[in-house]
């Protein structure tokens, strides 16, 4: 019934059907043309969703690809935000380099956490990473000299050469570009030898070891890469947002990203992207119904878990196949 580790580990490549390619092309066209026909508010939401897409990709690497449970994603995201903002402010680093610096710092911390995680599994790992996330939020809130503590940190506008980003519409092409770049990076990782190692370890560590995979190294690298991607998302946030407060980097953010990844479909890049967009939009739409939003939000989650436990995209794919086969 279940596939072998090797088969599962190599199942990263999928051929897209004609309608899927057409749909993707339409979505790409819409994404590129969005600023031309909509307001700054819509672009702000789009920017935020694209940041969440990258955050979800990061979590996908460690949970979806490698099967390790992490509850510290908001912390890595926060490290990326603070590190890139401070690099930009302190040494006037060109913003793309500041973003890379944010990703690097988050990645290094991720490697460290990954090394600690080697001794833990499942609920213990979840609790340990949760504790790290809480500790980092405390650091953001109390390391006054660096993070400006509970005052929050003002992020200087990003600069690309002579261009200073002062609006959501100006930031959007860059945010979109970096999001597409990170999707490409994640796909490349997934299809690489490293990605196959991730999945092999996820399916069976014993089988992976038998195939010559260094399980410990693979697990640590998965954590590091996941954190680096989250840190990069933090840098993207600084492209259009001028303020960060430690309150925004708590457990709620981690749970939101985890929900997006699970709802989209654990283990699938399309699921991580779709989950971020669909659930991000639901959250924004529900802001219009404050009296009922918690009930609706909870209801949607329960329905997803009941009827689409393998994720939104698998659910849609199954329904399309059923229609095609006349069932």
């Amino acid at each position: 019934m279940s596939s072998s580790p090797l088969a599962s580990a190599t199942s990263g490549k999928r051929v897209l059907s004609g309608p899927a390619i057409a749909g993707l092309a339409l979505a790409a066209l819409l994404a590129v043309a969005l600023p031309a026909f909509t307001t700054g508010y819509v672009i702000y939401i789009a920017n935020l969703l694209l940041v969440f897409v990258v955050l979800c990709l990061g979590l996908h690497v460690v949970i979806g690809e490698n099967g390790q449970f992490s509850m510290a994603h908001a912390a890595f995201y926060g490290i990326g935000i603070y590190a890139s903002a401070l690099a930009n402010r302190a040494v006037d680093l060109p913003y793309p380099f500041a973003m890379l610096f944010g990703a690097l710092v988050a990645g290094i911390v991720g490697l460290f956490i990954g090394a600690l995680a080697l001794r833990m599994r499942d609920i213990y790992l979840a609790l340990a990473t949760f504790a790290f996330g809480e500790a980092m939020q405390w650091v953001f809130a109390n390391w006054d000299s660096v993070t400006n503590g509970p005052n929050g940190l003002r992020i200087s506008p990003a600069r690309f050469g002579p261009l200073e980003i002062l609006s959501d519409k100006q930031a959007y092409p860059f945010v979109l570009f970096f999001c597409l770049l990170m999707i490409g990076v994640t796909v490349a990782i997934s299809r690489s030898r490293l990605g196959r190692s991730f999945r092999a370890v996820r399916e069976s560590e014993v089988a992976a070891m038998a195939m010559g995979i260094d399980v410990r190294r693979t697990r640590v690298v998965a954590f590091g890469l996941s954190a680096a991607i989250a840190g990069f998302a933090g840098g993207m946030f600084g492209l259009f947002q001028t303020f960060i407060h430690p309150d925004s980097l708590g457990f709620q953010t981690t749970i939101l990203v985890l929900t997006m990844v699970v709802v989209g479909g654990l283990g699938s890049i399309a699921g991580a992207i779709g989950g971020a967009i669909v659930f991000g939009l639901i959250s924004e739409v529900l802001r219009q119904a404050p009296q009922y939003q918690e009930i609706i939000y909870g209801g949607i989650l329960i329905l997803f878990m009941m009827y689409a436990p393998r994720g939104l995209f698998v659910f849609i794919g199954d329904r399309i196949r059923e229609v095609r086969h006349g069932r």
Partner: peptide
């Protein structure tokens, strides 16, 4: 009236919606 959820991202979204939309 917009809900800001006492959250920075949501508050900024609410403000931008009110001003631009």
């Amino acid at each position: 009236v917009e809900d800001d959820r006492c959250n920075a991202n949501d508050l900024v979204a609410a403000v931008k919606k009110l001003v631009e939309q």
